[in-house]
Amino acid sequence: MSASESAARSITYRPDLGLLIGRWFMNAPVATLQADYRALLAAAQEHHVGRWLLDVRRRDQLDPTLGQWTTGTFYPEASRQLAPLQLRIAVLCSPARLAVYADSARQQEYLNYGLAAERPYQLQLFGDEGQAMNWLNG
């Protein structure tokens, strides 16, 4: 197991599970979160892994700019850089975050875009870590 940690997040490669786990401990500015996602991609390239569990349960502030960037720019680029691996992303969300997604038309737009089957990556949201892990292994 190898890990990278900052005050706001950790990135852990689990060779026994064949996946990368990113966990955020707090909210952070968009620029910091974008750097975190880039660090996640660097770790994925280093370990040659396309299955990611992203735990965002403690990040309760949702900036639409980040949603647009992750689904429209970052995930497609990460998919290209990891090819021929299939990028499969399970996002572990708190009930409060899922409610924001449900109540915000703008967030729903980015989410629907990211979840669409025609994307070069597979993305699903989960409230339960066991279900997320089962999906990643499926």
Rank of each mutant, 00 (worst) to 15 (best):
R97A: 14
A102P: 01
Q108G: 08
R97K: 11
L17W: 06
R51S: 12
L85R: 06
Q131M: 05
R23K: 14
A8H: 14
C93V: 15
R14P: 00
T12F: 01
A43R: 00
R9C: 05
L17E: 14
R59V: 14
D16H: 12
R14K: 04
Q122A: 14
V100K: 11
L98I: 14
A44H: 01
G50C: 06
A39G: 05
L54D: 03
Y75D: 05
R106T: 15
P15Y: 03
L20N: 00
T71C: 13
Y75I: 05
H47L: 01
L33Q: 15
R23W: 00
A117Q: 14
L53D: 06
E77N: 09
R9N: 04
E118W: 07
R119T: 10
P76C: 13
P76V: 15
P29T: 11
S79P: 04
R38N: 11
L87G: 02
A78F: 05
D36K: 02
A116T: 09
L62N: 07
C93I: 13
W69C: 10
D60V: 15
S6Q: 09
Q86Y: 03
L115R: 12
V100D: 13
C93G: 01
A90S: 03
T73K: 10
I11W: 01
A43Y: 00
A83G: 06
E109C: 03
V56G: 05
L17C: 08
P15M: 04
L123F: 15
A90T: 03
T12M: 02
Y37V: 09
A43G: 00
A7D: 11
Y101F: 13
T12W: 01
L82Q: 08
A132L: 10
L82A: 07
R57S: 05
A90L: 02
R88Q: 13
F126K: 07
A44N: 02
A105H: 08
A8G: 09
L19Q: 07
V30N: 06
A39Q: 13
A39T: 11
L53I: 09
T71N: 14
S10M: 03
D128R: 10
S104G: 09
A83E: 14
L85M: 10
L82M: 04
L53Y: 07
V91K: 07
V91W: 03
T12L: 06
